[in-house]
Design a protein around this nucleic acid. Structure first.
Lengths: 136, 136
DNA sequence: GGTGAAAAGTTCTACGC
DNA sequence: GCGTAGAACTTTTCACC
């Protein structure tokens, strides 16, 4: 079970996933070893699944960020599910309900790169693309 | 500018954002102080924007995860942009191009909670909802 | 840009309550 | 579950190349 104290720890890690046990302990008045033990347990239970970084993809040369939704052609689903996570452009992939089966966020250099990426997808399904203007 | 070594560091942090400077240094044969200095610079330049955790929302009592797209009514955009980030259910919000102006990922307890959330949104725009089945 | 060394701080482990 | 204490390790700063 996830206690109230666990939720406090999670809320601190949401803001800064690199916060030290000692730092978290100071904020919620608990010893570093207790914090460590609780976080360990949350990781073991997979309540905390991973620690990630948020990057500025434009600064890394990928100025185009888009959502692409895919309506997969009959029989192609299994193939695309294994294939799609290997593309370096793909940041996140979800299976969803509705007219499209797959939803992904993708970072690309420019329009040409987007065109080439879409060309790879249209063998397996019909894509719809939405440009990401900003994140709030 | 972001060098080849910086990209290696970023790739390690992508896998585990809590990796220590010493650990990263061992992996790419560089001293902890150099790693620290480079990461510091990447943070200052905001190439690295933040360090996050990925949570299992179902285990935290929010078994329904959905994408909601919103077509905002005339004149309501500014209001919704400031309002929406204050909802605790909202995990991410993006402004996008296309028939919908806003794209968000939301974690909710159950259908009733989703209904209540949608009821709040329909004052400001027309929402479309897609259930997230799984993340790949 | 990089290292290495010393001080300060953190993590880890074991044990007691 | 939490705290403490000591050993091991990491971070931080700084002088030097």
């Amino acid at each position: 079970m996830v206690s109230d104290i666990d939720l406090k720890i999670i809320n601190i890690l949401k803001i800064n996933a690199r916060a030290s046990f000692a730092e978290i302990g100071r904020e919620i008045a608990l010893s570093p070893s207790s914090i460590r033990e609780r976080i360990q347990k949350l990781e073991d239970q997979e309540v905390i699944k991973s620690y990630n970084i948020k990057l500025d993809h434009a600064m890394l040369g990928n100025g185009l960020e888009v959502f692409i939704m895919l309506k997969i052609f009959d029989g192609k689903l299994k193939f695309i599910l294994s294939e799609i996570t290997t593309y370096p452009e793909v940041l996140e992939v979800f299976r969803i309900t509705g007219p499209y089966n797959i939803h992904m966020r993708v970072a690309l250099r420019d329009q040409l790169h987007l065109q080439q990426f879409i060309d790879k997808l249209i063998k397996y399904g019909s894509p719809t693309t939405h440009l990401i203007l900003s994140e709030l």
